[in-house]
Design a protein around this nucleic acid. Structure first.
Length: 309
DNA sequence: CCCCGGCCTCCACTTACTTCA
DNA sequence: GTTGAAGTAAGTGGAGGCCGG
C-alpha cells in the first residue's frame, strides 16, 4: 500500500529509497517494529502512538512477510506444547462439539479451529462448511479446557447455530469486548496460549476469535503505521527536493560569481562559511579580504552580515 | 547428529458481512 | 430503499520454529 501510494513498487523500495535518502530506513524500521512484536509475547507493550520512525537507526534485514527467526520458539515451550497434547482419535468428535437440532448442524468449538459448522443431511452424512475441521479434529485438546471453552462460548455458538446454509454470519463484538481486547492489546500485542484462553473465557469468546482479533489488530496497526511513515517519507522527500533546488540555485550563483570575480573565488574553501540566516555561502569573518579589496566592491559582492538577511 | 512429520503461530491476502453516509 | 465505501471478523495458504520419533 505504501509503495502504491508513493508510486513505486517493492523493487524501488529496496533500491531507490535507500540511495538518496537515509529515511528509507523507515521502511526497514517499520518492518523491524512490526516483526519485533513477536519477540514480546511477555515483553514490553506495543508502541501504539503512530509516529514516523526516526531515520538513522539500525535496521534488521528481514524480508517482507517473513518472520524473524526464533520468535515462535520464544513462546514458553511448556505452554502451548504442554496444554495441547498431541494425537487425536479422528473418529471421535472434539469434546466441544454439539448438535443443534434446530439448525441441523454440529458446531465445533476448538481454540485453534476456525468457525466449524457441519450440516447433517437427511442421509446422516456430515457436510463440513469449513475446511478447518480437518485441522481442528487433528488437534487433541484437554477435555476440561474444551468443555470450559465450549461453555464460555455458548452465546456465540447459539448465534452461529442460527446460520442458514453456507452463509457466514458475522459476529459483531460488543463495545465491552472490543474495549477489553484493546486494553489487552495495549499491554501485549501477542498472546500466549494461556493468556488467550483466559481472555477468551473472560470475553465469552472462543480462543480462536481472540486470536483472530489480535491478528487483525496487528494488521491494522501495521497499516496505520505504514500510512504514517508514508506521510513522513513524503515530507522528507519534499524537504530534500527543496533543499536540492536551493543548492542548485546556489551552485549557479557561485558559478556566475566565479566568472565575474575570479580573484574572490581563489580564496580557499576554509575561508568561506555559511550565513545562518539565509544559508548562503559567505566569507568567514576572519578571512575577509584585506581593506584594499573593499575599495573594489565589484570584487567582493558578498559583503554579508546576517542582520542584512 | 540429522531428517522428517506434526503441530503451532504468525503474516499477507482475501472474502463476506455490517454499518453508515 | 438503494448504493458504495469503509470497517472488520473470519478463511486460506505459506513460512518458519519447535519437538518427538
Amino acid at each position: 500500500m505504501l509503495m502504491k501510494q508513493m508510486g513505486m513498487d517493492m523493487e524501488d523500495c529496496n533500491t531507490g529509497l535507500g540511495l538518496g535518502m537515509s529515511i528509507g530506513l523507515g521502511i526497514g524500521l517499520l518492518r523491524e517494529d512490526l516483526h519485533s512484536h513477536r519477540h514480546h509475547v511477555n515483553g514490553p507493550p506495543v508502541q501504539l502512538d503512530l509516529l514516523p520512525l526516526a531515520p538513522g537507526l539500525p535496521s534488521r534485514d528481514l524480508p517482507w512477510g517473513k518472520t524473524s527467526p526464533g520468535t515462535d520458539g520464544e513462546r514458553s515451550a511448556g505452554e502451548s506444547k504442554a496444554t495441547v497434547p498431541r494425537r487425536i482419535d479422528v473418529n471421535k468428535l472434539p469434546a466441544s462439539c454439539y448438535y443443534n437440532e434446530d439448525a441441523g448442524t454440529i458446531n465445533v468449538s476448538s481454540p485453534n479451529s476456525a468457525l466449524s459448522s457441519f450440516h447433517v443431511d437427511s442421509g446422516g452424512a456430515i457436510n463440513a462448511e469449513s475446511s478447518c475441521y480437518a485441522m481442528s479434529v487433528k488437534r487433541e485438546r484437554d477435555a476440561t479446557d474444551e468443555l470450559e471453552a465450549d461453555r464460555a462460548c455458548s452465546r456465540v455458538s447459539d448465534e452461529e447455530a442460527d446460520q442458514e446454509g453456507g452463509t457466514r454470519k458475522k459476529l459483531r463484538l460488543s463495545k465491552e469486548q472490543s474495549a477489553l481486547l484493546e486494553e489487552s492489546f495495549k499491554e501485549n500485542s501477542s498472546l500466549n496460549p494461556k493468556q488467550k484462553q483466559a481472555l477468551a473465557k473472560r470475553l465469552n469468546l472462543r480462543p480462536r476469535q481472540v486470536e483472530v482479533w489480535f491478528q487483525n489488530r496487528r494488521a491494522r496497526t501495521k497499516l496505520k503505521q505504514t500510512e504514517v511513515d508514508c506521510e513522513f517519507l513524503k515530507r522528507c522527500c519534499e524537504s530534500l527536493t527543496d533543499e536540492n533546488r536551493r543548492l542548485q540555485k546556489e551552485l549557479q550563483e557561485l558559478r556566475a560569481l566565479k566568472l565575474a570575480s575570479p580573484l574572490y573565488m581563489q580564496m580557499p574553501a576554509a575561508t568561506l562559511t555559511m550565513c545562518p540566516s539565509c544559508e548562503r555561502v559567505v566569507p568567514a569573518e576572519n578571512s575577509r579580504p584585506p581593506p584594499f579589496t573593499l575599495a573594489k566592491p565589484q570584487f567582493y559582492p558578498y559583503t554579508h552580515s546576517s542582520a542584512a538577511c
